[in-house]
Computed example of a mutant assay.
Amino acid sequence: MTRTALVTGSAGFIGSHVARRLLDDGFRVIGLDAMTDYYDVTLKQRRHQRLMQSEGFSAVEARLEEPGRLEALMAEHAPEVVIHLAAQAGVRYSIEAPESYVEANLIGTFRLLEAARAHPPTHLLMASTSSVYGANEKMPYAETDRVAHQMSFYAATKAANEAMAHSYAHLYGLPATMFRFFTVYGPWGRPDMALFKFVKAIRAGEPIDVYNHGKMRRDFTYIDDLVEGIRRLVDVPPERGAPVGGADSLSPVAPWRVVNIGNAAPVELGDFIAAIEAALGEPAQKNMMEMQPGDVPATWADTGLLTALVGEMPQTSLDAGVRAFVAWYDRHYA
């Protein structure tokens, strides 16, 4: 039987790739996106256009926070799987426009949880972020680490989302898996992310801003690897009282867990830039900058729980991933 999935943020970078994978696997996909103008709406529209080539995809343009909209959608389509990826993204933008994070990330997620309570899916999967680890200095980050000191309002809203989902999982028996993503990159990526900004600037012969004088380390995760992790976790809903291995983040009082999805191999920012220069075949002009407010010097995912749940994961090399992005960028913006 064909399964139905609701994917919020389906015109976004990660959401469009997840929707494509589900369609390829035979799902019927309802894709909801508000098409907000945080970045180029045309790029979002083109992502949706690619999905609409499949008969199994239905696009809905609406805001998460619109009262009753999500509940009506779930009542109509009764999705077995809900993958909540819609959010106001960006660490730095959350300093400039915090109210948009309250509306999309807090109120919008509340609306989704209420809709899931009224029309329960077999599995609710929700995006969080590695930014919730905040000021933690222990590396690599493990899901069972304390996450009490977020460094940005964006991270704070995502930590709140985890707590909100846990309360609904406990109160209503709603199986919920939270993903903590680590610096995702690849084709169809967001224009506000470093890879997109660096490639665009270097192609234009303009300097790139290198924060913290390049002394940053990030656990760069290629989009296809991330999507593979999400797809496998769809079929592993948490069960209360059934932990996996000795380091499971499964709640003792709810069918709820949080899972890191990363490459488990942090890379120096300088090496990242070198991979971009190699893929482009031209050097970057570097404008060295201080650390920006809300940022952290390093991220590193402990992916032991992910492996315990779904098996060994693919790991695309940074060079291969950057080359794939550059090839897409040159085709798309030729």
Rank of each mutant, 00 (worst) to 15 (best):
T2A: 12
A5G: 00
L6W: 01
V7G: 02
T8Q: 00
I14V: 15
S16W: 05
S16A: 14
H17F: 05
H17R: 15
H17K: 05
H17W: 13
A19V: 00
A19G: 00
L32T: 00
M35R: 04
T36L: 09
D37A: 13
Y38M: 12
Y38W: 14
Y39C: 04
Y39P: 11
L43C: 05
K44G: 06
R46F: 09
L51K: 12
E55R: 13
G56F: 14
F57G: 01
V60T: 09
A62D: 12
A62S: 12
L64M: 13
E65P: 03
E66Q: 13
E71C: 03
E76C: 05
E80Y: 02
I83C: 00
P98E: 04
E99V: 15
E99N: 08
L112H: 01
L113V: 10
H123M: 07
S130C: 11
S131Y: 08
A135R: 14
S152N: 08
Y154M: 14
A155E: 03
A155N: 03
M164I: 07
M164G: 08
S167W: 05
L171P: 10
L171G: 11
Y172L: 01
P175I: 12
P175L: 02
M178A: 13
F181G: 01
T183W: 13
P191I: 06
P191Q: 02
D192M: 05
M193N: 14
P207E: 11
I223R: 00
V234D: 03
D235T: 08
E239P: 11
P243I: 06
A247Y: 10
V259M: 02
V267K: 04
F272M: 14
I273S: 02
A279R: 02
L280E: 10
G281I: 05
E282L: 15
A284C: 06
M288L: 15
Q292L: 15
T303P: 09
V310L: 00
Q315Y: 11
T316D: 01
D319H: 11
A320Y: 04
V322T: 04
A324P: 09
R331L: 14
